[in-house]
Design a protein around this nucleic acid. Structure first.
Lengths: 148, 148
DNA sequence: TAGAGATACATGCAAACGCATATAACTTGC
DNA sequence: GCAAGTTATATGCGTTTGCATGTATCTCTA
């Protein structure tokens, strides 16, 4: 396959990659990530969304990191007192995770600024209906299409 | 800001992140990345798209990596004979990059398989018009919106 | 209910990354 | 035309990553 437009699917993927990279760079450059890296924040955010503690393997589904890397990232966050590890009553192999008070505080603090800059960047580039379309389409893609 | 839906812009961004992570994992898991990592392929692909040699700083705009990391990635690719460094006649600080024959061959070989699996995944999840919408919207986002 | 295989997480280790900073080359104001 | 500031890339160094593999636990089949 020669680079350059060949199929709408590939062009769409390439556009998504570019948008992701551009937006990530912009967000990463913001001066709001005090003591947490973006990847660490991603974990705190994912935990904050969950009412119940979740397993590392569940967390792994949301994070673009190898399992060992995630295992150690969790280690570091736990070491800093931002998250807690619990044994899973239903499965002795699993480790369940939840935010500590401090972790929740950090997530709120960083999340407040980050959410603002996300909203600013997205609404500057896209209309309300484009935002809605993007969300719908990306959800389908994230779920892997019709099959599965 | 409390996690969970608050603003269409944030929901759209979160969906884009999920789609990106899910698709990247799927692509990374494919057994097609012989001697190159995905990030290395990204560089080879970007160079393959360009008719002319491009600067490292130009390449850096397309790649989600710090400048030093990209500098060393270029080092490794050049060391393996996949890309070539040229001095820039117009600017003594710059380094211009182009694919070697071997680099082009690797890009074609890996690109063939990768493009196929991208097309498979994207068309399985999205209709033709959704693909077109996604491309349009992501291009706008990548270019940073109306201003700029 | 044992034994084989699968699954969840952890760890050793080399490679790769980011941050801070160095070096070299360009640009600008005077 | 030169000092002061900026830009493009490289390098030192501590941290983080991925791969291969280890350990513990669960599941499934006979």
């Amino acid at each position: 396959m020669i680079p350059g437009s060949r199929h709408p699917a590939n062009d769409a993927w390439e556009a998504l990659l570019s948008a992701h990279a551009a937006a990530m760079k912009q967000f990463a450059a913001e001066d709001i990530w005090g003591q947490v890296s973006i990847r660490e924040y991603d974990v705190l955010y994912t935990l904050a969304k969950c009412a119940e503690p979740i397993r590392i393997s569940e967390l792994h589904r949301h994070v673009l990191l190898s399992q060992p890397a995630l295992s150690r990232l969790v280690d570091r966050l736990a070491g800093r007192g931002l998250i807690e590890r619990h044994p899973d009553p239903a499965d002795g192999r699993s480790v369940c995770l939840s935010l500590t008070g401090a972790g929740r505080a950090v997530q709120h603090e960083v999340g407040r600024s980050h959410a603002r800059s996300v909203a600013r960047a997205m609404t500057a580039a896209l209309s309300r209906s484009e935002l809605a379309q993007l969300e719908t389409i990306c959800r389908k893609l994230a779920e892997g299409g019709p099959r599965q």
